Simulated assay, not measured.
Amino acid sequence: MRLTVLGGCGAWPAAGQACSGYLVEHDGFRVLIDPGYAVLPRLLRLAGAEEIDAVLVTHGHPDHCADLNPLLRARALGDARPPALPVYAPEGALDAVLRLDARMSARGVVPHDLVPSRALEVGPFRLDTWALPHHVPNAGLRLSGGGKVMAYTGDTGPADTLVDLARDADLLLAEATYPEQVPGEDAPYLSTAAQAGRTAAAAGAARLLLTHLWPGTEPEPALAAAARSYSGELAVASQGTTVCL
């Protein structure tokens, strides 16, 4: 299993960057996770739009799904004309982005609702999901394939179930919008690098990749905050980062 980071910027894409976007490959099967703002141009450097086999979306905020629209347009209007794309997301999460181009969406997508505690097969992967706290319904994702496990939080506030999501994972990809403290009313709905480090340590995750840092945030404070409780392999998700499990 191989993960390639297409973007990891939170909220909006800073200059030269993209928001959340991750390509996971195993046994020739390509899954695109959270195609946020500016992800598609980065993806197309690695694979054609028609070569994506499935899309997983944790929640309906546009920094996690806006580039589903140009991906579908590239598939529908390009020369290859692939079959409809299986897209997995919480119920209703993609209504707004699919309405941007309803005609192409209707024929270009096979929708699947992500239901917590209901395991799915997505190509060669087993997909398990957890409902995690955010401003909108958010699905934590756990992909298993070839004896390896990648867990991804999407955007989430503190939750005991995060440890279950990440239990013994080979890689935990964790939202870490702020290094130490989430300000004010967002505290129940977003996470810090310090919290991600504690989760990874408690879960026994082999690697921790911090993502969704607030635009303009330097990586060093986030890494230092996570490292106080987590002693495993640690990095910040940046465009082009590749992790082979």
Rank of each mutant, 00 (worst) to 15 (best):
V243F: 14
N69G: 11
P183C: 08
G16T: 03
S238P: 03
R2Y: 03
S105W: 03
A194Y: 05
G216A: 03
E233P: 07
A18S: 13
A222L: 09
A38C: 13
F29T: 01
A119W: 07
D67T: 07
V236P: 07
T58M: 07
A66D: 12
M150Q: 04
R81A: 15
R142A: 04
P183N: 02
E50T: 06
G78K: 15
R126A: 12
Y88S: 09
A89T: 03
L32H: 04
G108T: 09
A18D: 07
H134R: 10
H61E: 15
A18Q: 05
M1P: 03
A176R: 02
L114S: 08
A193F: 12
L32Q: 01
D34G: 03
A84C: 13
P221D: 05
D186R: 14
G240H: 03
P62A: 01
G21E: 00
Y152I: 02
Y37C: 09
D155I: 12
G146Y: 05
L56P: 08
V87R: 00
R81T: 10
G48R: 14
G123C: 11
L6W: 00
T217H: 05
A139C: 07
L6G: 01
T177D: 09
L209N: 08
G78R: 14
L165F: 10
A193W: 10
P62Y: 01
L245H: 11
S105G: 13
V163W: 03
A227S: 13
E91Y: 05
A84R: 04
A206I: 11
A119S: 14
A66V: 09
L209Q: 07
L71T: 06
L245Q: 10
L46C: 07
G7A: 06
A119P: 06
V136P: 00
S105T: 14
V57R: 02
T242V: 15
A49V: 12
A225L: 10
P179N: 02
D53Q: 12
H61Y: 09
L71V: 05
L6T: 00
A237Q: 12
A15G: 06
V97P: 01
D53A: 15
A202F: 03
T242K: 08
Q181V: 12
S191I: 04
A187M: 13
A74P: 02
C65D: 14
A176S: 14
E175H: 15
Y37S: 12
